[in-house]
Design a protein around this nucleic acid. Structure first.
Lengths: 342, 342
DNA sequence: GACTGGCACTCACAAACGCCGAGTGCCAGC
DNA sequence: GCTGGCACTCGGCGTTTGTGAGTGCCAGTC
């Protein structure tokens, strides 16, 4: 049985009312607050159907209705238009992000901004190494047998690693090594580097071979294996808004999940995301057990149209989806522009 | 009126019982659980005195007694011996910290370890720049007018900053600048560098003067003004143990305070701390309004006997002080050793 | 003077109860 | 297909009542 227009209107109204009042909404209140031109009894019939179809449910007999995860899903997909941002919000975004001094700062400001605007928990992934390319590699002799390897990515991210060399390496050789490495790897995308690193060792003359191969193994680790993905988090205090009414009684599992970087990465990890798309995960659509009571709105971001990381917010399933989606994608767009300006 | 030995025993017993049961403790239960060789009535008299003196209080008439912040303070100062760590805990610490690959890793492992062992919120300050010294400064030409300034501290911490030069700087000059900078600043403690940076500009010949002075201003910023202090946090989920019984009903203010790095730094900031001392802040001794319902156990850490940062845990005033103090100082000691090995 | 047993008193907490009203489902009629 | 009417359900709330842990005080004993 498909739902006619009025039933969809009813669902939309229920979602909107419930999101703003946080209380089960009844048939009478609905006709009053929305100008549905029918009587409560009619609405009740519609609601019965919507309930059969699994879009809404009653917390208990003789209570109003509450949207189910499925109901929110339909609402998000079909029944809502993305809210345009208010001028105040636009200004807030600009003010907040202008004046960031470096990459870390951009990320930290962004995550706070998101948390503040959406009044939810915000998560921002640092620009991923694996998706960026090498701008420069530097070797800094620290002692005769120790070299600090510093990699600078085009996103501005810097990784460093101390390398213990098998033999003392004179300064002149360090320069040669550096030149060779930069010529080979400079400008390359990190994902493409492993074979190049191999070549590098093979192309090195025997005098430097040992040193280069030591460096190479650390390079591989730094560039690929340890593409450690950092995450910034803000707004956890927002979880306590609305009492513990949301989240079926316990913040515990949510706080726990939020401490697992791996979990967060999975959530907002932007692996196969189109940069223009904003993804919404509602309640039990979420793969992470502990976060079944929450919804996540996330998107990828990056300079131009390449995605270098993800960001998003997490909150109760009962959230203002249109507003949140608008905010998340606007912020991502601004951050992308900032990254593009380098 | 001073408290005789038995009254102190009573206070100690009350603290211990309350910490483990989390329930107001009455006179009868007290004589049963501890072999005080007197009757409940006697204990009641003692308790009345302890209450007059402000060490304990009754949540309501006809309830047992609960320690006050003042009571905990006396307990910590006079009535408890630091618990030796269990072998299991020692092993846990070693296992956890061995195998850290770099400084960030050490800090992250440490904070998780602390949270896990104490079952509280743990906070670790990254080794502070201001307390460390310059191991090496590197200039990396990124384009003709852009130079990446990388500073490596002796704690292994790395700071980088992109500098926009007023004029193109040829590679050879970059080398000269680098050499000059390193000769002047290498090995110096960061706090001592500002006057040296001044000298540096003055000693530079006129051809490079402009470039050097640009670098100098950024250097000053990086080395001193922006001695940005990072912080790692873990175990926030532990706040929810014991219901919201602790923390007088709301996690909100605590979560908020924990998001303010500045606040955390103030808490565990190790400014004038002796490395061997472990500091305990109980309840309202805490300067931060929002954390009046919590206690903080903190200490400084660093290689050898210099303090390069602070670490600590935060929990309900009703916490196991002897155990927590022991854990925090043990972990700090281990971390210090690791840093010393560099 | 220090300790104890006894006793009356207090009060939080839990269970039981009744009431109210929002909200429902169903049905007969338009 | 919509509506008004009606009987019914049940969660929430305020009241009442009982229970028991715990207290303060006092008179008596060592």
């Amino acid at each position: 049985m498909s739902l006619d227009d009025r039933k969809l209107d009813v669902l939309r109204a229920i979602v909107q009312d419930y999101v703003s009042t946080q209380e089960p909404v009844g048939s009478k209140a609905l006709v009053e607050r929305h100008h549905l031109r029918v009587s409560p009894a009619t609405i009740r019939n519609d609601m019965a159907v919507l309930e059969d179809e699994g879009y809404i449910r009653q917390p208990h007999t003789s209570a109003g209705r509450v949207p189910t995860d499925r109901g929110y899903r339909l609402f998000v997909d079909k029944l809502s238009r993305i809210k345009p941002l208010s001028p105040a919000e636009r200004r807030a975004i600009e003010r907040f992000l202008v004046g960031a001094v470096d990459l870390d700062d951009v990320v930290h400001r962004t995550v706070r901004l998101l948390a503040q605007l959406t009044r939810q928990v915000a998560v921002v992934q640092f620009p991923s190494l694996s998706r960026s390319s090498v701008r420069h590699l530097e070797l800094v002799p620290v002692s005769t047998t120790r070299i600090m390897l510093v990699m600078i990515a085009d996103t501005g991210r810097v990784e460093q690693r101390l390398v213990e060399m098998p033999d003392p390496v004179p300064e002149a050789d360090v320069l040669r090594l550096r030149t060779a490495i930069n010529e080979k790897l400079g400008g390359e995308r990190l994902v493409d580097t492993p074979p190049l690193v191999q070549d590098l060792v093979e192309e090195t003359d025997s005098g430097l071979r040992r040193a280069m191969s030591t460096l190479a193994s650390v390079l591989l680790e730094t560039l690929v294996e340890r593409t450690e993905e950092r995450i910034a988090l803000a707004g956890t205090a927002n979880l306590t808004r609305g009492g513990i009414l949301d989240f079926q009684g316990s913040l515990r599992p949510i706080l726990e999940a939020l401490e697992e970087e791996v979990v967060l990465l999975k959530l907002i990890g932007s692996a196969e995301q189109d940069i223009t798309a904003t993804r919404v995960l509602i309640g039990d659509e979420n793969e992470i057990e502990h976060l079944r009571a929450t919804s996540v709105v996330s998107t990828g971001y990056g300079p131009g149209s390449t995605v270098v990381g993800g960001m998003g917010v997490l909150g109760p399933t009962r959230m203002d989806y249109p507003g949140t989606i608008a905010t998340v994608s606007a912020v991502a767009r601004y951050v992308g522009e900032i990254l593009a300006q380098n």
